[in-house]
């Protein structure tokens, strides 16, 4: 179970990306996070595993208070949170198998990962997951030899290889064509149901969100403006979320999106710099 309580995020530039965001995701529930681009969806999802550091508030996964963990503890918490990215974010020059196995990096010591000598159970699990997402035959191919849909399946397998207790999914279909998008969404929902995983799917396509998720949270300018079941999502609510023609808000949002990305990069840099 994931509990987010009064989460706030203010960037160094003073832009307020999230304001008092609170919600709870019970086991097995798939939540669609919708909102205009830059409403803070990206920031919210990255605040949960602290790729972006929240300013205040609490994030609690089962019994762990994530927002107050030390670096080492955060690593252990992160390995229980699977993340799937918009542009797949596979390591292009590694094989599909290595990409899936990289989901175990939080569990194995460095020498094992360096020599690619992962424990047998991890390898069997990776094969099972590749079979599950229909890529058994591609295990030894390099990731950059796959199509977009196939790459996203590898991304899903990598996240599941982590034995996650929560899935964070950032725009899984943004780089895919409509048909593949549907297939990927169906796969995600099925997989979450199989092991009753809670998931937050950040998605801009309202129709897809309504079709595949159990619950929808609408964000607008960093605030939760809707939280309910997909069929409660009426025209009026959508207007409230996306605005009539509030272009200025949209543009400010885009800037915030870039900000979220930049901050995430800075965080990664900081991490690396602790070497």
């Amino acid at each position: 179970m994931l509990t987010v309580d009064k989460l706030n995020k203010t960037y160094k530039t003073g832009d307020k990306a999230l304001t008092d965001v609170s919600f709870t995701v019970p086991k097995g529930q798939v939540v669609g996070l919708i909102g205009p681009s830059g409403a803070g969806k990206s920031t919210l999802i990255r605040c949960i595993n602290r790729l972006v550091e929240p300013t205040s508030g609490s994030v609690r996964l089962n019994d762990t208070e994530i927002s107050r963990l030390s670096v080492g503890e955060l690593r252990r918490a992160r390995r229980r949170i699977g993340m799937i990215f918009q542009e797949y974010a596979l390591v292009e020059r590694l094989t599909v198998m290595e990409n899936v196995l990289s989901g175990r990096l939080g569990y194995v010591p460095f020498w094992r990962s360096f020599l690619r000598k992962f424990p047998g159970d991890d390898i069997a699990k990776a094969y099972r997951l590749l079979d599950r997402v229909g890529l058994m035959a591609h295990a030894d191919k390099r990731a950059d030899a796959l199509s977009g849909g196939q790459r996203q399946r590898v991304g899903i397998a990598r996240a599941l290889e982590q034995d996650p207790e929560l899935m964070l999914i950032d725009e899984p279909t943004a780089s895919l064509d409509p048909k593949t998008s549907r297939q990927i969404m169906r796969l995600l929902v099925e997989i979450c149901a199989e092991s009753s995983l809670p998931a937050i799917i950040n998605i801009h396509d309202v129709v897809l969100a309504q079709q595949f998720t159990d619950r929808i949270i609408g964000l607008q300018a960093g605030q939760v403006v809707f939280d309910g079941s997909p069929n409660e999502l009426t025209e009026a609510v959508l207007t409230q979320i996306y605005g009539e023609e509030d272009w200025t808000a949209m543009r400010r949002g885009a800037a915030e999106d870039a900000e979220a990305e930049a901050e995430a990069h800075r965080e990664t840099e900081k991490l690396m710099s602790a070497l």
Binding site: R116, F118, I123, R128, D131, A139, E194
Partner: peptide, 14 residues
């Protein structure tokens, strides 16, 4: 899920 056994060995292709 069917109880199918998967290989527990994998070597990086050269």
């Amino acid at each position: 899920m069917t109880k199918q056994s998967y290989p527990t060995q994998w070597r990086r292709p050269p």
